[in-house]
């Protein structure tokens, strides 16, 4: 892979049947990262999970009324950094107000953002034009 920039862009309908495809791309990318010296199998699972959770989030927060709505996902691999952006067209939500799961009294929901925050190095959610962008960064060294 050398140091060259790799870019992947996928646009899917807002349907959960495409989660496997998106997650699999993350898993496959993890196995190609020459620079990564950590546990590659774990990274593969984590990228699969983070892409799955982020895409579900975008589908849930996307426009519920438009059957032609899409989610755009970009993955950029730089020398020491993996950058994921997931774009939705919905109303958005306040990332900072999402609480940690209550580990003493576990609930069914609310673990998705926790996984993304815990397994990756930086997570932001911002409005850009007519989209919301969930940006996730994982440092590779």
């Amino acid at each position: 892979m050398c140091n060259s920039l790799i870019q992947v862009e996928v646009i899917i309908p807002t349907q959960t049947k495409y989660l496997d495809l998106i997650g699999s791309i993350g898993e496959r990318i993890a196995k190609e990262l020459d620079k990564f010296s950590g546990d590659r199998e774990a990274l593969a699972y984590h990228l699969n999970l983070v892409l799955t959770e982020a895409t579900v989030n975008a589908i849930k927060h996307g426009t519920q009324t438009n059957p032609n709505d899409t989610v755009r996902i970009t993955i950029h691999i730089r020398e020491n950094e993996l950058n994921i952006k997931v774009y939705d067209h919905g109303q958005g939500f306040d990332l900072e107000s999402v609480p940690l799961p209550d580990f003493e009294h576990p609930q069914e929901g609310g673990m998705g953002i926790f996984f993304i925050r815990t397994l990756m190095d930086s997570v932001t959610y911002t409005r850009q034009g007519d989209c919301n962008v969930l940006e996730i960064i994982k440092y590779l060294s």
């Binding site: 576990p106 929901g109 673990m111 996984f115």
Partner: peptide, 13 residues
């Protein structure tokens, strides 16, 4: 070989 937060939620339910 893979479970996400919704899968954990289903089992917890």
């Amino acid at each position: 070989r893979f479970i996400d937060s919704s899968g954990l939620g289903a089992l917890l339910s």
